[in-house]
């Protein structure tokens, strides 16, 4: 359990590296690298969320707000003030962490339902601000003309270049997160999930750990938001609504929130479901999501990555 298994990670990395070439040769999936950019962006958010919900056991239904804060800070600072996109990305993460501390310190004292509802309310308030502060955010019309990213004269101007940029960051976050989980802090987090009272008695500073994880998840979501804004060059509030927070919940519930791999599996599946496979249902896809979420909750409490464990259990009997 506490050993890092390197093989799956290396295998996954190789797959990500060669995938664009495979997709390039098969016309039917020629647009998949583009979708994989979104999958990568969602992975960044769900990795943080799985650490928060699966490991620390804290419910956030407002994660779309941090995603939106990253996107809007990047968009506003580059479009209105002409600042460098990388600088704005960092500012976005700083603002997101400051907001996370402000919301987190009182919220994380709350348990269960209260925490869920506090983050839910926070998410909706931020969404309303995006819609109403028209002078800065452009209101429902959003902001266009957001510049792309470049590094020392190298422009991330094609799908392929952006794909590698996003996935490089996903791997950095993934490996960092796995290391956190294996460390002392990770053990402390799991202890908090099992019993706050007991872990506090063992000398774990419960509230500090909870805040740190919340801030970490906010930073990743903000980074994802900035990447989204600079990739599409356009944002509007509807991307960051309540339903996106619920979609994130579906991702980690479907993949399995007790393992970081689950966050990645879930982000992939939901990205492809929403951009490709559920097109047939159009806007009624929401019903399909609801049914998936309900079935997973009832029959697969550990998500898809929990299936191997269930199968093993059968054989052992």
């Amino acid at each position: 359990m506490l050993r890092i298994r390197k093989l799956p990670i290396i295998g996954f990395a190789l797959f990500i590296i060669v995938f664009p070439w495979i997709a390039g040769t098969i016309p039917a999936i020629g647009n998949y690298p583009d979708l994989m950019i979104f999958a990568g962006i969602y992975c960044l958010i769900t990795i943080g969320l799985s650490l928060l919900m699966g490991y620390a056991g804290q419910i956030s239904l407002g994660q779309a707000a941090f995603y939106g804060i990253g996107a809007y800070v990047s968009a506003i600072l580059t479009v209105h003030f002409g600042l460098s996109p990388w600088f704005c990305m960092v500012i976005g993460m700083l603002i997101a962490s400051a907001v996370a501390v402000l919301v987190g310190v009182p919220s994380l004292k709350l348990r269960g339902h209260y925490l869920a509802m506090a983050t839910l309310a926070f998410g909706i308030i931020v969404f309303i601000v995006f819609n109403e502060e028209i002078e800065w955010t452009g209101g429902p019309d959003g902001i266009s003309g957001i510049p792309g990213l470049s590094l020392f004269g190298f422009e991330f101007d094609t799908v392929l270049k952006y794909y590698y940029l996003v996935w490089f960051l996903v791997f950095a976050a993934f490996i960092f997160t796995i290391n956190v989980i294996q460390s002392r802090s990770g053990r402390a987090l799991r202890a908090i999930h099992i019993s706050e009272a007991a872990s506090s008695a063992m000398g774990v500073n419960v509230s500090r750990f909870k805040i740190m994880v919340f801030v970490y998840s906010a930073i990743l979501a903000s980074l994802a938001g900035s990447l989204y804004a600079h990739y599409l060059n356009f944002i509007n509030p509807s991307t960051f609504d309540l339903f996106f927070s619920i979609k994130l919940l579906i991702m980690i519930a479907l993949g399995g929130m007790h393992e970081v791999w689950g966050a990645i599996v879930g982000a992939f599946l939901v990205t492809f479901l929403s951009f490709e496979w559920l097109h047939f249902f159009e806007e009624f896809e929401v019903i399909v999501y609801g049914i998936i979420l309900l079935l997973v909750t009832i029959f697969l409490p550990h998500g898809l990555v929990g299936i191997p464990g269930i199968v093993k259990g059968w054989f052992r009997r």
């Binding site: 869920a116 919940l249 019903i287 979420l293 909750t297």
Partner: peptide
């Protein structure tokens, strides 16, 4: 708490989608 909240959220989006 988590599974029950998720279950009622799932139910609510199913009902909402059906109403749409």
């Amino acid at each position: 708490v988590l599974t029950l909240i998720i279950a009622t959220i799932a139910a609510s989006i199913i009902i909402k989608g059906t109403a749409m």
